[in-house]
Every structure is written in structure tokens, then in C-alpha cells.
Design a protein around this nucleic acid. Structure first.
Lengths: 177, 177
DNA sequence: TATTGTTATACTCTATAACTATA
DNA sequence: TATAGTTATAGAGTATAACAATA
């Protein structure tokens, strides 16, 4: 199954990459592989390649849209609130696969930035409904443009295989989630 | 381009997932989407779907192999050292797209666990060569079995499309990294 | 009792910058 | 001056557990 060493192409400057893990800071180092390192079995693993692709995508997104302030996760939260006005925090958490305690700081930050509004439910006072504010809608539109530009790059790489590619990614999330 | 609300299937128990980002703790919550949340534009983004798939894969890996002690990132480091005996820390960092300062604690931990040995270079005393120890090789073999079992699940989902799928993931990492 | 959200806490991962020791 | 690795520090992201308010 292993047809000899799998060596990775050298990266000249080792530019910033982007990932699916979370960088704490703006720029970074390294891309996805260095000078002649044998990845061995890892090279054929879907899991490993999923990781480096996501890592690259995330860093690239942050590198560009990060200047605008928000990161992929916050963009996702904003987009979901925009598409689901009045959604509760718990539901939002489920949508992005995060615990409710991880959602609290996210929505607090979005609120602090004036991008969302939080209204206590009338019927069930435990619940808080989330809505985009005017500035929130603008920001979402702005970030959407960035996200689209970013995804266009991915579209170019994936080409015609996009529908199948997306289907596979969704199947993975669905089956292992 | 948007053909109406994209609603996600309900997840009964909201089991643990696994991802490409890093969970700080063992188990977790949420999978990738909740009861009837409209993901809107996100649903069609490669970047977003890459994220949720990687998240699911990572959590699934950790959920099982995590019991054995090491996480995906450490497994990757171990595998790379195994395939590149004598590799330096900087090179290892490049291979997994991390700064050298992020590598130090990783290799220190692996050393503390007795899984790797670090030898100062004779020719260039600044460099440190990394090697697996006997226990390190055993552990790697053990983790490889877990990783393979994990990847077999992914293989089943991806099926015949695997070569193309891997190629696309590598292209993404390569183009955006 | 169960659920929604908050808080306190803790831990992982990561990077930047400054540093040591080599080269 | 430049490079390999370390340390100090800081910050993002995440979760668990305990809690308050409400149902």
C-alpha cells in the first residue's frame, strides 16, 4: 500500500497558512509541509489531509478577512443568526457543534460589537433570541463578500467536482458527528 | 444560487464529535448541526463544510484514540518522526505547519512519555535530532492501528472517490497554504 | 426535575518576541 | 549576522461543573 517515501514539495518562503485549528494570532508560519519530509502513512489518510486542507483554508480566510475583525467561527455565528432570526443560543451552539458555555462569550462579543441584539423571550423567559442589528447585517454582507471570494479560490481548485466534494464532506460530518 | 432554506437533520442525542480544531477535553457536545437550523449560504461553502467535516473527524479520532493518550496532532508528530529518523524540530514544525516554538512543548511531552529520544547533533550543536524509542515505536504502531480503523470509516464514506478526494484536499492545502 | 443561559475554572494549542548557544 | 531551539507571555477556543432563573 505504501509505494515508497512520499516527499513533500519545498515551500520557498514558508508563507502563512491558515487552518481549521485555531491560531491565536494574525500571521503565522509554515504551510503544510517542508523540505523533503516523508509523511509516510499520513499521506494516504483522509483524516490527515482533511486537517491540512482545513488548516490552510482557515488561515487563508483569517489572513484576509481577519483584517476586517472577525474570524471564521464568528462569521459562521453571524451568518446563522442572520438566516435564523430569533434563534436561541443553544440552537446556535448545536448548529456549530459547540457547547452552550462556549457560545456565551461569542454572542457577548458580537453584542459588544453592536452586531447582534439579544432579546429575552416573552413566552419562556429562560430563552434569549438573537437578531442581527443594522450594523450586523452590513458586517455580515461585508464578510460574506470576503467569504465568497475565499470560496471562489476553493471553487477554482475543486472545479467540476464541487458537488461531489461537498457531498462527501457533509457525509463525513454526518456519519462521524 | 440559494435554492431556499437548507435545514439540517436533527441529531437525537447530540453525540460527541471530533474535529480538526482542538477540543480541550475528552468528550464534547454537538455534532455539526441541530434541529432545523438554516445554514444559508454557509451550506454551499467549501470552507465551511471542510471545517465541519474536519471537526467531526478530529473528535471521532480523539474519542477513540484519545483513551490511548495521544491526540491527532501528537500522533502526526510521532508518525513523522518515525518516518524521518533524525529529523530536526524546525523541519518537524514545517511538516505540520507549526512554529518552532509550538513544537518544543510537543516534543518535550513525547520525550517525557519516553516515546522519543532527542540527540544533539555532532556537526551542528544547535540542532536536535529526533528519534522514536522502542516504546515510541510500539505506541506509534498502536496508534496507527487506531488511525487506520478511523480512516477506514472515512474510506467507507468516501468510497471510490477517495483518490480524487485526497487529490483535492492536497490541492487546497497546497494552493492556500 | 429539566432546561436556558452564565460564570468560574482549567486546559490545549498556538504564536510573537526575546533569549541562549551555536554557526 | 543568521539559525536552532527555548522560554516567557499572551490570547483564542473549548469544555465541565456548579449555579440562577424559569418552566
Amino acid at each position: 500500500m505504501n509505494e515508497g517515501p512520499v516527499r513533500v514539495r519545498v515551500r520557498q518562503k514558508v508563507a502563512s497558512a491558515q487552518n481549521g485549528t485555531r491560531p491565536a494570532s494574525p500571521a503565522s508560519e509554515a504551510a503544510a509541509s517542508p523540505a523533503g519530509v516523508d509523511l509516510g502513512e499520513l499521506d494516504g489518510y483522509i483524516g490527515f489531509n482533511l486537517r491540512i486542507a482545513q488548516d490552510a483554508s482557515f488561515r487563508s480566510f483569517t489572513r484576509e478577512a481577519g483584517q476586517q475583525g472577525l474570524e471564521p467561527g464568528q462569521f459562521a455565528a453571524l451568518a446563522i443568526i442572520g438566516h435564523n432570526p430569533g434563534i436561541g443560543q443553544g440552537e446556535l451552539g448545536q448548529a456549530i457543534a459547540r457547547d452552550k458555555s462556549s457560545i456565551t462569550p461569542v454572542v457577548q462579543k458580537l453584542q459588544r460589537l453592536g452586531l447582534i441584539e439579544r432579546r429575552q423571550s416573552e413566552e419562556d423567559k429562560r430563552r434569549i433570541h438573537l437578531y442581527l442589528t443594522g450594523p450586523g447585517k452590513e458586517r455580515l454582507a461585508q464578510l460574506s463578500r470576503h467569504a465568497e471570494a475565499h470560496d471562489r479560490k476553493l471553487d477554482e481548485i475543486v472545479g467540476d467536482a464541487k458537488p461531489k466534494f461537498l457531498e462527501l464532506l457533509k457525509s463525513i460530518a454526518d456519519a462521524l458527528g
